[in-house]
Design a binder for these strands. Structure first.
Lengths: 213, 213, 213, 213
DNA sequence: TATGAATGAGTTTTCATTCAT
DNA sequence: TATGAATGAAAACTCATTCAT
C-alpha cells in the first residue's frame, strides 16, 4: 500500500519495464553514474525523453532505483541458500562462492553495475546508496562458522582465521576472473564457473592439509 | 627515434613535465575520465588551456598518456626487485606482495588512477588501454617458482599451484584493504602494510602446514 | 446565447467554478503568466489535469479568462458607486479613489494579477488582453465633472483641469503605496487606506486654495 | 584595475557589445527575467549560445549586468543636472521631471526594463539588485527643497508637503503616459514630452495659486 | 611555437498539451 | 463527457576542442 516515487514506472507492463531496466543497467554499468547519458538510455530503451523523467523524476533517482533493483536481485540469490549450510567449512564457503560466481556468470552486466556503484560514484549518491542497501547487507550477513563440525580441525587452528583464508581465496578468484566474465556470454560464463570450481578445489586441497588433522 | 604524438610535451623541461603530470593524475584519479575537467587540470598545472591541447591533442590522448605513465611507474617498481628472490616460496611472494602494497600505500592516488582506468572508463578508452599496456604486463610476469627450494614441499604438491594459492591470498588482501589505503595518508598506509603483513603471515602459517612436509 | 469557448467550464456548479478560479488567480498573481504552473493550479484546485484543459483549452486561454474575470470584478465595484456623486469635486474624486484603494486593500492578489497582466506578459497575450478589456475601460469612464457645484470655483479655473489634477494626485498615491498593499493583510490594508486618505486630504487642502475662491 | 566577472564581455569591440546589450535589453524588457529566453537573445544578437555564457556566466549574472547598465545610463542623466537647481520649486521639479520624461521618451525599452526589474522579478534577483543599485539611488537623492526661495510661500504651507504634491503630480503623469511611450518612436516621444510639459504647467498654475501668496 | 577567445554539440530537466479510453 | 498517462519541444548551462594570431 505504500506509495513509491516510482509508481508511474511500476505500473507499466512488465515487459516494457524489463526492457527499460535493461537499457538503464547496460548504460550505467558501462559508463558509471556521471558519464551515463539519459539520452543514450532513452534511445536504447526506445522511449521518449519525457517518459523517462515521468517514470523516475531525475537521473539520480533513476540510478538509485536501478542499483536498488540490482541489489535486490543479488540478495534474492543469497536468500535462496538460507537453508543450505554444509557442516564442512570448505563445502559451505564453496557453495556460497558458487552462488556468487553463477550470479556473475549469468548477469555480468548487472554485477558490473553493482561493483561500480560503490566505487566511482559521487559522494552524495554513495551515501544515499549505503542507507538504502544497508538493510540488505545486514540481512545477508549470517555467521560463517556457526554450526560447523569442528572435530576435524587441528587444535591450534582458529576456525575463524581458517574461514577468512578460504574466503580470501574465493574473493581473489572472483577478482581474477571478473574481467573475463564481463567479456563472455552467460553460457560460457557458467562453463567458466565449473572450471573455477575445479581450480578452487585444488587450492582447498592444499589448505585442508594445513587445517585439518 | 620513432616520433610520438607527445613530442611537444616530452621536449619541455622535466620539472614542468612532472608538475603537469601530477595535476593530471590527481584530477583523473579523483574524478575519473569523463568527469575530469581539462579546465581544472590547466588551473592546477598553471598552464594555458591551448597549451594542454598543443601537448596532448585531445583529452582522450592525454588520459591514455597519463595512464601509460602510471603503468610505467608501477612496472619499474617490480623491475627493481628482479634480483631479490628468496628461495622460500612464502617469503618470495610476500616480498613481491609487500612491494605492491607499499606502492599502493605511497602512491594511493596514482594507484587509484590505475585501478579505475580499467573499470569505469568508456569502452573505446579501455580497448586502447589494453593494447598499450599488455606488453608491460607480459614483461613483468616472470616465473614465480624458478629457483625455489623444493625440498620442503610434500611430494604430492604442485609448486605452481601452491604459488597460485598464495598469490590469490595476497591479491584478496590487497582488494580487501584497497579502499582503506585511498582514505589514509602514505605514512598511515605504510603502518597498515605492516599490519597486513602480519595478518598475511597468519594465513601463510595455515597454508604452510598443508604444503610443507 | 453566443457560445463561448469556455462553456465546459461555465456549466459546472458555481462553487467549483469559484474554487478553480481562486486557484488560478493565486497562481498567476504570484508567478506571472509564464512561470505559473498548470500543475500547481490543478493541485490547488483539486481537479485532474485533463479537466483543466477540457475547461479552458490552453494555458493562454485560461489566463485570458482569469484576467477577464478580474477586470469584471473590478469594474463591478465602480458600477456600484454610480449613484453616489458628492457635489464637491474633491469629495467626489476622493470617494472614487477610496473605492479603488479599498479594492486594492481587500483583493491585493486579484489586483496584482490585474496590474501585472498588462506589464510582464508576452506580447501576444497583452494584445489579446487589450482588445478584450478595452470595452470595460470605456464603459467605466463616465464624466467626472457632471453635476458639480461650480459656484465655489474661481472663474479662471477649468473644472476639467482641476479634476484631472486631483485624479493625478490620487493615481500617484496609489502607485506609491501599491507595493505596500501587496505585502500586508487586507485588515492592515484597510487601515492603510485611512492613512492614505488623511495624507490625501492634506494635498487637497493645498490644491483647494488654488482652485476655490 | 579591478577584475569584473564580465571582463570577457567588456573587452570585445564596443560595436558588438552594444548590439548584444540591445538584444538583451529588448528581450528582458519585453518578457521579464524568468520568461526571457537565452535562446532568443543569442538569436537576436547573432552570437552562438556558448558565447553568451562565456561572456556572462549565467542568465542571472547577465540580467544583473543588463539592469546595472540601465541604472547607470539612467543615473548619468540625473548627474548631468547636478548644477541646475532653479530656486523656484515648480521649475526645479519640472526640470527634474523633464529629464526623466526625456529618458523615457528616448529609451522606452530601457526604461521598461528598469521599471519591471524591481517588480516582477524573483526575490533572489531583487535582493541582489537592491544591494547593487542602492548606491546609485542614494547618490541621486539630494534634498528637493534645499536652497529654495521660500519668500513666495504662504506662511501656513509646509514646503515639503508642497514638494511632495508636485512630485506626485509628475509621477502620476509619468505613469499615465508610460504605456504610450512604449508604443511610439523616440521622436514622437520627445514631442509627447513637450505636450506633457505643457499639461504639467497647467496643473502647476492651479497648485501655485494654492501655495504661493 | 604557443595561446586563449570563441564555439556548438552535448547535458539534465520542465511542463503545457494531447489523446486513447 | 472527463481523464491522466505519456510526450517532445524548449529551457539553462558545460566543456572539450579549434583556430587566428
Amino acid at each position: 500500500m505504500t506509495k513509491t516515487p516510482y509508481e508511474n514506472f511500476e505500473k507499466i507492463p512488465a515487459e516494457d519495464r524489463q526492457r527499460i531496466l535493461n537499457a538503464c543497467i547496460e548504460e550505467f554499468a558501462q559508463h558509471g553514474y556521471r558519464q551515463a547519458s539519459t539520452n543514450a538510455i532513452v534511445k536504447k530503451a526506445g522511449i521518449p525523453k519525457g517518459t523517462l523523467f515521468y517514470f523516475f523524476g531525475s537521473k539520480k533517482a533513476l540510478y538509485l532505483y536501478v542499483v536498488d533493483h540490482a541489489v535486490r536481485r543479488f540478495t534474492v540469490r543469497y536468500a535462496e541458500l538460507a537453508g543450505e549450510m554444509p557442516s564442512d567449512l570448505f563445502e559451505r564457503l564453496l557453495y556460497r562462492g558458487q552462488v556468487k560466481f553463477r550470479f556473475v556468470a549469468e548477469q555480468p552486466v548487472l554485477f558490473r553495475l553493482l561493483y561500480n556503484a560503490f566505487i566511482h560514484t559521487p559522494q552524495e549518491i554513495r551515501d544515499e546508496l549505503r542507507s538504502r542497501t544497508g538493510e540488505y547487507a545486514a540481512a545477508s550477513a549470517g555467521s560463517l562458522t556457526e554450526g560447523l563440525d569442528l572435530s576435524k580441525f587441528r587444535e591450534d587452528v582458529d576456525p575463524e582465521k581458517a574461514a577468512a583464508l578460504i574466503q580470501l581465496t574465493l574473493d581473489g578468484l572472483l577478482n581474477k576472473y571478473l574481467g573475463t566474465f564481463q567479456q563472455i556470454s552467460p553460457t560460457e560464463g557458467l562453463a567458466l564457473v565449473e572450471q573455477i570450481t575445479a581450480e578452487c578445489r585444488e587450492y582447498f586441497e592444499l589448505i585442508r592439509h594445513g587445517i585439518y588433522k
